[in-house]
Design a protein around this nucleic acid. Structure first.
Lengths: 230, 230
DNA sequence: TGTAAAATATGTTAAAAAACATACAAATTT
DNA sequence: AAATTTGTATGTTTTTTAACATATTTTACA
């Protein structure tokens, strides 16, 4: 009854498109589907991965607990995308936690099955290598921007990042994800107060407009300029 | 005449140990050896990778230019280790630069040859996946510590990181790498002034002792405490 | 070997961001 | 519907860190 899993594995756009029918059937037989409510934890820092988790529906934040329990969001996942594969492939326990920020559906592909297919399928290995290498580039980039940019620059970058990740509503300006001010702060390496304050400033400068958790980008160029300036 | 390359490929401890003799010979035939003086640039942000670079001798820093040209060191390489493989496998141009901080020898394995061997050798793919996944974990960790820890915590962490990476001299306390105060600052996300000042403070607290660029760790537990506290 | 340049050191000031305080609104629970 | 909790908003204070200034030492090299 795990239709969601089947859909992902059969998806022509997914990394599994390089597999033959037999391999796909094997994956389907060894995967399970799980449903999560908004704010549900999918896994926690320290947990042991037991498979490749694929986000089929919903949105998920990946975060680490830092100094004094302060949360830093290191990644935002969208369908169809993988979660927690870093720990799985590094053969480590999770170094970050995953939490659904919307009702979500995940499909977990059993570890041994995945590795057995990986053994014979060069294309799949290569696409995993590419994914990890891209994400490492992204992470290194973020290390620099989060440490070097000032508050306005960091917030502007986060808003552009959210836009790039989740896209815009039909109005071509509302960012298609609804985060709490606290999550925006944890994504941008600042306190909640400063996230709220800086969002208000951006709104007063007509760069964005705010309506609860809805954020409309009014001046893309302006936002990019602030992000680049630091 | 590229003996250095041959040594690396034949090394029982390297990732190439999983290759058969034929594959090793192919790699040797398609690799070149290059010598760098201290402060020589090996590659620059934006350059196109043309092979897998292996550091055979010496020490190399990998850094990114941030806001206003401010440098952030994202990795320190030691022999025998790979450099610039992220960009190679992501099929991107380099997102960081590499500079020798000591006289160094590198061995470059030609790209096409490497990929052809990768195609047939599952073990090699897997070890690359593991490396990338580990480094991604490290990078995410650093994002959090560099943004959340205070100056003392960041510097303490950097000193411990340098110790873990390059080890200690025979005296069991001198860190086996000699960096400028500027490099230490660029590794720890602080200004040179603050690196100098904080090093002096640590020295006055008898946590470390300084002799030019030689740094002796006198109180390991103390340093760890400062690092963990933030 | 003298001189310029680079690196190190340290004090002072200015700016940035966190911490704190408080108020209010909205959502949830009872 | 009242009470409580949670999230948002904004002003003030304090801390942290960068920026600046200047001196001294070391290194490079002509």
């Amino acid at each position: 009854m795990n239709v969601e899993c089947h859909n992902i594995i059969d998806n022509q756009m997914s990394v599994f498109s390089v597999l033959n029918q037999e391999e796909k059937e094997l994956l389907k037989k060894n995967s399970t589907c799980t449903y999560y409510k908004k704010n549900d934890i999918i896994y926690k820092e320290g947990d042991k991965p037991n498979g490749l988790i694929c986000l089929s529906k919903g949105k998920v934040k990946i975060f680490k607990e830092g100094v004094g329990g302060r949360e830093q969001i290191v990644r935002m996942a969208k369908p169809v995308g993988f979660i927690g594969y870093r720990a799985l492939f590094a053969e480590q326990n999770y170094l970050a936690s995953a939490e659904a920020i919307e009702d979500s559906v995940i499909c977990t592909i059993e570890k041994e099955t995945l590795f057995s297919i990986l053994k014979t399928n060069y294309e799949l290995s290569l696409s995993i290598i590419r994914s990890l290498a891209s994400e490492l580039g992204f992470s290194n980039n973020r290390t620099v921007t989060l440490t070097q940019k000032h508050i306005r620059g960091r917030l502007a970058e986060s808003l552009l990042f959210l836009k790039d990740t989740y896209g815009l509503e039909a109005d071509e300006s509302t960012i298609k994800v609804y985060l709490s001010r606290e999550d925006i702060a944890n994504l941008s390496n600042m306190t909640t107060s400063n996230a709220i304050r800086t969002l208000s400033t951006f709104a007063s400068e007509k760069i964005i407009s705010l309506d609860g958790r809805k954020i409309k980008i009014l001046d893309f160029k302006g936002l990019e300029r602030i992000s680049e300036l630091g």
